[in-house]
Structure formats: structure tokens, C-alpha cells
């Protein structure tokens, strides 16, 4: 199991890769809403989640995921990644 802080850092790194613009991982606030504040939408969210799967070698349950669940990096790291079992 990854250390929680490390998980957050890795999620921020993945998010920086998919968000439009030149955002650096360290510039993404842990508590910023990924959808309403950072601009993640249903298209970039899929790209983000697929890369998260790659980064953490997990399989997300898309049937039970919605854009509404992509709130902050901190919440996503704890509630979505934290409950997934490594593949």
C-alpha cells in the first residue's frame, strides 16, 4: 500500500499531464475541485482515470464512477484509489 501523501503527489502528477495548459503538479491545490476549479470534464476525466490506472496499476470501476465523484485530489486519492485493490 502506498503512503497516502505519496498517492496524492502521484495523482497530482497525473492530473497535471491531462489538464490543459501548463499547470505543474505542485501548483495543483490538494483541495481544489477537479471539475469546477481545474476544468476536468467528462473527456479529460477519462484520460485522467486511464492514466491513474496505469500509474497505480489498478482497475477502476467505471460503471460506478461519475464526474460528480471527481472532487478534490485529496478526496479522490483517499476514497477512489484507496479502496481499489492492485491488479
Amino acid at each position: 500500500m502506498s503512503h497516502p501523501v505519496n498517492v496524492v503527489e502521484r495523482v497530482r502528477k497525473v492530473l497535471a499531464e491531462v489538464l490543459p495548459g501548463e499547470l505543474q503538479a505542485q501548483d495543483i491545490p490538494e483541495d481544489a475541485d477537479m471539475v469546477t476549479e481545474l476544468g476536468l470534464d467528462s473527456l479529460t476525466a477519462i484520460e485522467f482515470l486511464l492514466r491513474v490506472e496505469d500509474e497505480f496499476d489498478i482497475e477502476l470501476d467505471y460503471e460506478n464512477l461519475s464526474l460528480a465523484q471527481l472532487t478534490s485530489v485529496r478526496q479522490f486519492s483517499a476514497e477512489v484509489i484507496g479502496r481499489e485493490t492492485p491488479a
Partner: peptide, 9 residues
């Protein structure tokens, strides 16, 4: 393919 539901779409 993997997809996300997006309320309000």
C-alpha cells in the same frame, strides 16, 4: 469503452 456519466449533460 470506459466512460463516465456526467450529470446534466
Amino acid at each position: 469503452l470506459p466512460r463516465l456519466t456526467s450529470p446534466g449533460t
